[in-house]
Simulated scan of single mutants.
Amino acid sequence: MVTFVDLFCGGGLGARGAVNAGATPLLGVDAWDRATETYKANFPDAHVICDRIENIEPLNLAKEYSPDVLLTSPECTSHSIARGAKPAREESRETAIGIIPWLEAMNPRWLIVENVNRMKRWDRHNELVESIEEYGYTVSDLYLNAADFGASQARKRMFLVCDREGTYVTKKDLLNKFGKKELPASSVIDTSGKYKSKPLYHPRRAKATLDRAERGIEALGKGEDFIIVYYGSDYAGGWQRLDAPLRTITTIDRFGLVTWDRDTPMLRMLQPSELIRAMSGGEDHLLPHGSRREKVKLCGNGVCSPVMEALFRHISSEMEQGCCISEAS
């Protein structure tokens, strides 16, 4: 069975994909207490530490934990396009370099680094890759979309998949083996009536919101449900169809659902229970702790589970083949 240590573990959405592939989490580390509480609720057998990785001596933990995979998702706020024009915080980006002492101490066969694709523009990105290679790893630099692996979300991320025994991983190979049909945004919508909508048109509704909704209504016609998309680049007019994967979930409320009560358009925000389905691809993952805002943030900070499941299935397959070759020889 493949084991892993999970740095910047968040609420465990990446770990959920690994566990779905048959792997076992040994240790999760994150600086946010709400994230570590959520991780522990989902993986009670894992040891969980709430602290920054630079405050921890990995050599001490290496005496107890010897993972097959070191799974890492360094802080991405200073790489993300969603941050707008805010100045970059170098200490945020430096968290990626901070994984190197853990790599050296734990000496896993595999290392996975997940981040937004703009991380490649960071002037120390090549330094990070070269540092990993100096420890004997072959680095596969991939750009993967969660929708290609059966998620109901178009979430595009960079993955460095690094193997100390020389395996090079390609996107084509992953898609051939583990690719799945994308799911539409409609697949995450709760239609039970539990969450109440309000009329789209009322005096306190922002004009920008009405403009987004009216563009959707004009394109689809009355009576067709759709999603308003707040924030980020507005390349689609601020709305999207329900028959396409949800656009990227962020750490703040971004999606409003427009439905119809006869001829009256109604609006409500998507709820954490719906967002978690778009992140985890199922009903298994728990969000038992925190406010609504914190639960949205946990989803937006997470790694989409179906992609991580595909990566860990690939790793498991490679390790099983290696065992078979060793036994045969």
Rank of each mutant, 00 (worst) to 15 (best):
S78I: 07
G28H: 12
N55P: 02
R34E: 09
P25E: 12
S80N: 04
R93E: 14
L103A: 13
R89N: 13
E94M: 15
P25H: 07
R52K: 14
D51F: 02
V113F: 01
P25V: 14
A88P: 12
E75A: 15
Y65P: 00
V116E: 02
I112G: 04
A21M: 12
T36D: 06
Y65Q: 00
H47C: 09
I56T: 06
S92A: 13
I56H: 03
P101H: 10
L7E: 07
I100D: 07
D45Q: 14
T38M: 11
E37S: 14
L111K: 02
E37A: 15
W102E: 04
C9T: 10
R93Y: 02
A82C: 12
N115P: 06
Y39I: 12
S66I: 08
R118Q: 15
R16E: 14
V19H: 03
G22C: 10
I100E: 06
P58E: 02
S92L: 08
L26K: 02
R89S: 10
D33M: 07
P108D: 03
V48S: 04
A82L: 14
C50A: 08
A35Q: 11
A15D: 04
L61T: 00
T95E: 07
P87L: 09
A21G: 07
I100F: 06
N107M: 11
L61G: 01
P44Y: 08
N55R: 12
G14R: 05
A46P: 05
L59R: 14
Y39Q: 11
K63T: 04
A15I: 03
K40W: 03
T77R: 14
F8H: 10
I49T: 09
I56C: 05
V29W: 13
A85N: 15
M106E: 01
E91C: 11
L111Q: 01
S66L: 07
W32C: 03
C9M: 05
G98I: 08
L71R: 01
R83E: 05
N115H: 05
W110D: 06
L71E: 01
T77Q: 09
N60H: 11
A18C: 10
I97R: 14
N55K: 13
M106S: 02
A88I: 07
E54W: 13
K40P: 03
C50E: 02
V19Q: 03
L26V: 06
W32P: 01
R118Y: 00
G98W: 13
I49C: 05
P44G: 08
E64F: 13
E90W: 05
E64N: 12
A46C: 07
N115S: 10
P25F: 08
I56K: 03
R118D: 14
E64G: 00
I97M: 15
G84N: 11
L7D: 09
H79N: 07
E64Y: 12
I97F: 10
I53N: 03
L103G: 03
L27T: 05
G22M: 11
P58T: 00
R118C: 01
K86S: 14
A88N: 08
A35K: 11
P74V: 12
L59D: 13
G22N: 10
L71Q: 05
A85G: 14
